[in-house]
Design a protein around this nucleic acid. Structure first.
Lengths: 254, 254
DNA sequence: TGGGGGCATAGGTGAAACACTTATAAAATA
DNA sequence: TATTTTATAAGTGTTTCACCTATGCCCCCA
């Protein structure tokens, strides 16, 4: 557990993070730990200082990466991007509410080519999907081992998309099974009636009340629920309710 | 940016700072006595490796403290305490949904004198109160600046209780106001276990998965659910899930 | 003009979950 | 010490879930 990588123990604690351009030559992933030649510039956005420190140390420990800035909220993040010109941004989407995804969208508007790795404590496919749709190039959970973060960053830098195995498979299933496209939410696949039921579920109504409200058999509602689950790639009733509530919420919040 | 150092400036009690030797690479068992003489031994419990790294680096940077172990869940935490004999444990109470409060109670049963600083991402007085009642000597939020963590640790080591100003005041008010539930939500009426179950429901877990996660009978979870519904005045399961999700959402989106 | 396909409707069945009741032992509290 | 709260869990009957099947309906298209 104690995993301190005692590679070169270069844990920098110096006040200035101004990495003076490296002067050493050693290219590639050399054995040299101290000199960084054109290091990948990483911006960290998270509202937890301790977390930032963790990520920062992890990255600065890599010989070909450097933390070029930090930000604790959406606004500061935008400023920091402008100032520090990162190659990649690692952002936590649960900072101060919707602003996580919102920030991501804003970033993508202003710097469409900036790579973004989303860091989250939720393992819900909901967020991953939204994050990718909003333009993220990867989604990783805080529960993951630290090395995974580096793996994710490198994968993204190489132009690929990073997703955890579990999440990736699940999303593929959704895509294949539901015929949904990356660009549009699979919710569009729902028929009118199904969407109506979905909405009512999201408002907290159970099967029976919905049946009564729509003057239908309980059995019919059950069928609709089953179809909705299928189309959205949800495993069970709990997930269904979860997504429904989420959707209703996001609807009402514009 | 990389806040590493403004950190030390405030807390520092001794002149020397930039520590030369490698930050104790493998403190696990070897009590390296070279640079740190009788350092305070700190155990870190958190399910986020990145966070652990951040806290670890922060602590190992202090000349009179050392990280003596890490753990990512309640069970490993207990083992780690036995193995590494820490002076103080810094634990996250929201480890994987499974309550750190439970862990805290267990710790207090087996090592009543072990000091515990609770780390949390919630600034809800609900948790702080519970944590203190369960035997914690301090409560600090992850949003706090890193140096505050050191302040908290030192205060606790000196025998005092650490609470953030804001939180402390709020708790005093609640105490003065007599019965706590005056201003707060009825959620405060829930017992620790009930709150834990409530949180898991809000994360989208069904009865059975929760039972498995907590190593309890399905029947017990059903009982908890019933009690929660009663205390919160909810009519049925759907409402329960609805509120739980809402609550979790508002918690994590601070 | 006859299918094919999706949609809305709904029945059947066995497995879960829910609702309500009761109970016990261990705590916290009065 | 007596009483209440908490955590645990079983019993029973109802409801919902999950999975499968089926019937009209409407629209498109070959």
């Amino acid at each position: 557990m104690i995993s301190a990588d005692n590679t070169a123990s270069k844990v920098k604690t110096k006040p200035s993070n101004k990495e003076p351009q490296a002067q050493a030559a050693s290219p590639a992933k050399g054995i040299m730990a101290t000199a960084k030649k054109n290091p990948t510039r990483v911006l960290i956005v998270d509202d937890h200082p301790l977390l930032r420190r963790g990520v920062g140390q992890l990255i600065n420990n890599e010989k070909d990466m450097t933390v070029c800035g930090e930000a604790e909220d959406a606004h500061k993040a935008l400023t920091a991007i402008q100032d520090s010109k990162p190659d990649i941004a690692v952002i936590d989407i649960s900072l101060g509410g919707t602003s996580g995804i919102e920030l991501l969208k804003n970033i993508k508007v202003r710097w469409p080519k900036l790579l973004v790795l989303v860091l989250s404590m939720h393992d819900e496919a909901v967020y991953a999907q939204r994050a990718l749709r909003a333009g993220a190039a990867g989604y990783i959970m805080k529960q993951e081992a630290t090395e995974r973060v580096l793996v994710a960053i490198r994968k993204i830098l190489s132009g690929e998309v990073y997703l955890s195995e579990r999440l990736g498979n699940r999303m593929l299933n959704t895509l294949v099974g539901g015929r949904a496209s990356l660009s549009g939410s699979p919710i569009e696949e729902l028929s009118d009636r199904e969407l109506e039921v979905f909405g009512l579920i999201g408002q907290g109504h159970g099967t029976r009340p919905i049946a009564e409200k729509l003057h239908l058999s309980v059995k019919t509602i059950e069928s609709h629920r089953a179809h909705i689950k299928e189309k959205l790639g949800l495993k069970n009733a709990t997930e269904l309710v979860h997504h429904a509530i989420q959707w209703v919420q996001s609807e009402s919040l514009g």
